[in-house]
Design a protein around this nucleic acid. Structure first.
Lengths: 197, 197
DNA sequence: TTCGTCATGTAATGGGTTACATGATTAC
DNA sequence: GTAATCATGTAACCCATTACATGACGAA
């Protein structure tokens, strides 16, 4: 047993924070502090990042040429504070769009799906559908795993563990229903407004 | 803004894995491989640990004198494989019971609440109640945060982000309801079988 | 004899937080 | 003038994963 057999996809983790930062900067230039606020507000319950990861991340992205410091914004000392305003470069834009359209397994993971969805408005219906369906499969797998485990061990579990597991299962089932609604609505979108039919 | 103001509780993190291992060994002696299976089975959807964290953890706990290698089990080569069977020491038992009964904020965190609940059968009703109520407050706080954020930004959000946030809110609300049920049932337990009244 | 599973471990790496250090600006 | 918030950053640490290395046992 290879410990976790999540296929041998060599994808380099596709850092969630990178993606999120790129996505926000794709909407408008921002400085670090504001970026973090937006980030934690819009990701809400899903995730919260600290400066200790944000600032190094910005530096890294800058090093990779995906973002630049917007000198014009920094220079105009209208409100004199020393802000470092970042903008997406052309490569940054390209990179982000690529990541967004990719819709591979990395966008289905628990921690990145929400972030991807946050930027759904910037994709096309087909990609959204692909991601939503991928996510649903993932969650359905999880559900099946839980169900199997539960029916296997139900008798041996004390009432608390049982309730815990059942609640977990319910949550997952709820997510599946939610995803299905989204998928249906997305599908009707597609058929009423066909992309190239 | 001190970044995250989770009070200045100096509690040394109360490592979840440690607690879980202690708890499982409190039920019966086990060797590493089996421990991991039990762990990932009973924590189910909540968490999954790898050997890379489990074995060092066992070593550490052993160093702290909380667990020992059960030589009798290792010596009896009935099924000759070289297993290293661990047992709780007296201090280990004490430590675990203390942690279990403590029911402080650390048992309300997302990642440790489930683990604590897994071992509820080994506590008293009062402690269970305390932990459940603590957890509920925590989740209610989260709910309020989400509601506030949502009502503040509802207009500015695109439909996808909105749906995402709303689903997050629903999940949290669902957990609150669930916890309330558990609390009520635990309360009636207490009143029908008073501990010292 | 080879494959799957049982079984134990280590080294490198990763992605993040905490706590700290610093200072400007705004509101009271 | 002082408290809160805005703003940027760094260094030390933490907890865990991944990938690797090793080997015994049972079944086909």
């Amino acid at each position: 047993m290879r410990q976790t057999d999540r296929s041998s996809a060599a994808a380099p983790a596709a850092r969630v924070l990178d993606f999120a930062v790129l996505g926000l900067l794709h909407e408008s230039p921002l400085h670090g502090y504001e970026l973090r606020k937006q980030l934690n507000a819009s990701l809400g319950s899903l995730r919260a990042f600290s400066y200790g990861s944000l600032y190094p991340c910005l530096r890294r992205l800058q090093g990779e040429g995906l973002i630049t410091v917007d000198d014009s914004a920094a220079a105009s000392k209208l409100s004199g504070r020393s802000k470092v305003v970042y903008t997406l470069t052309a490569e940054g834009k390209e990179h982000f769009t690529a990541l967004l359209g990719e819709g591979g397994p990395s966008s289905w993971e628990d921690d990145s799906f929400g972030v991807h969805m946050r930027f759904f408005a910037q994709t096309d219906a087909a990609t959204r559908l692909r991601i939503l369906e991928g996510r649903r499969s993932r969650v359905e797998e999880k559900r099946e795993g839980l169900r199997a485990g539960l029916s296997r061990t139900r008798e041996r579990l004390d009432s608390y563990t049982l309730k815990l597991q059942e609640h977990g299962l319910e949550s997952v089932e709820h997510e599946v229903r939610w995803l299905t609604e989204l998928i249906d609505s997305e599908r009707s979108h597609l058929t009423t407004t066909p992309p190239k039919d």
